[in-house]
Simulated assay, not measured.
Amino acid sequence: MNFRQLDLNLLRVLVAIHRTRSVTAAGKALALSQPATSNALARLREFFGDDLFVRSPVGLQPTRLCEQLAPAMQSQLLAMESLVLNHQPFEALSSQRHWRLSLSDLGEILFLPGLAAALRSESPQASLSNISVDAAQVASALEARDIDIAIGILKPQHRGIRSQLLFKERYMAISSQDWSPTPRGRGNTLSLAQLAQARFVVVSPTATFHGSVEKMLTAMKLQDRILVRPRHFGAIAVLAQSTDLLCIVPEMYARDLSQRLQLQMWTIEDAPVYEVNLVWHASTDQEADQQWMRGAVKRLFSRA
């Protein structure tokens, strides 16, 4: 085994397959074709004299040697990438950077327009993608540089993950102008007794950052009052306008819809407060481009 004969680009393939447990997924992450990724794996197997990965019903499983190599290699690759990027000046106006964010379905509605407008104004040649990442996998995606930042109800406790509070919110209800609580009350705060007489719409996205809505209603013993569970927030406005249902959504979205569509907005008595955080990996702390993007997010959305 002669280290000088090893193409270091192959190590990126090893790390990607180890992370995704799939040759196809690793190729997509690295912008390589499936044959090119398979060829790289074959060269790695020949160099190390080991299978490195074996097939299983749940994807490729690393061998003992691979489990020793891949985590250490990923750490070294991140360190080298950070070292290189730290010495490159960042000019937002001329940058062609492709930013990769992780936002929930609602986060895309609330944050993407503002971020896109900021890019068009301050970094017009840059582009932006919202990458679908399950909330439980955000820390791994940040570490692997699959995404640059994440915004949401996130509190990853993994080593090397940084977070900063953007704002605190609570859940509120919106309804049509014709809806009124039973029994009738004064003001726009709904009591537990009034909520117990209503029927709810609660969004249940698959990769959710908002599962706590159902937790809140369960704690209030109102989970059986949920009548409609759409997968996306896009249906909320029509449901609120055209039915007698209460739609329970985060405050920021409730205010936006009530102002634009003349819906009623209701405060929920004793609704818990939650935190919306900006999350990133510590390895990007000193990178000028990442600092710029984090600064833009905080400037646009921070109310902490």
Rank of each mutant, 00 (worst) to 15 (best):
R260M: 11
Q157C: 15
A16F: 10
R229S: 12
L60M: 12
T267W: 14
K221L: 08
H232I: 11
A304P: 08
I248H: 04
N39W: 11
F53P: 04
Q125K: 06
A25Q: 11
G152I: 00
T20K: 15
L85F: 12
V279I: 11
G160N: 03
H210L: 15
L246E: 09
A150Y: 04
E275Q: 10
Q125F: 10
K215H: 05
E122C: 15
G27P: 00
V297A: 11
G27S: 01
G114Q: 07
L166W: 07
F48L: 03
L192F: 09
Q241T: 09
W99M: 10
I17C: 10
D256A: 13
S129G: 03
L190W: 10
H210R: 08
T267N: 12
T267V: 12
I151P: 00
I109G: 00
E287Y: 04
M220L: 11
P57T: 02
G152Q: 00
G152E: 00
R199A: 07
H18L: 06
L115H: 05
P183Q: 05
P124D: 08
M172Q: 13
I109S: 01
Q290K: 13
L245D: 04
L239A: 13
A237S: 09
E91Y: 12
S56K: 05
F3A: 12
S176K: 03
S175T: 15
Q137C: 06
Q194C: 08
R225W: 02
T20R: 13
P62E: 06
G295P: 09
T189P: 01
A116M: 07
V273H: 04
E122A: 15
N39S: 15
L195T: 01
A296S: 08
L60K: 08
L30D: 01
P205I: 10
E251N: 09
I268G: 10
E108C: 03
H158P: 01
D244G: 10
L78H: 08
D285R: 14
W179M: 10
V203N: 05
W179Y: 14
V238Q: 15
F47I: 05
M172R: 14
S212N: 11
L227T: 13
A70F: 05
R260T: 11
T267L: 15
F209V: 14
R231M: 13
S176Q: 01
V23W: 06
Q291D: 03
R100G: 00
H232P: 02
E269N: 04
I151K: 00
I248P: 03
R19N: 09
N9E: 14
Q264P: 00
R45W: 05
S123K: 02
A26N: 13
R159N: 10
E269K: 04
A235K: 09
T182M: 13
A92C: 05
E169Q: 14
A118R: 04
Q68N: 06
Y171W: 15
W266G: 09
P57N: 04
F209D: 13
H232S: 14
L103M: 00
F209K: 12
I153P: 00
N130F: 02
L142K: 06
R12A: 15
S163A: 14
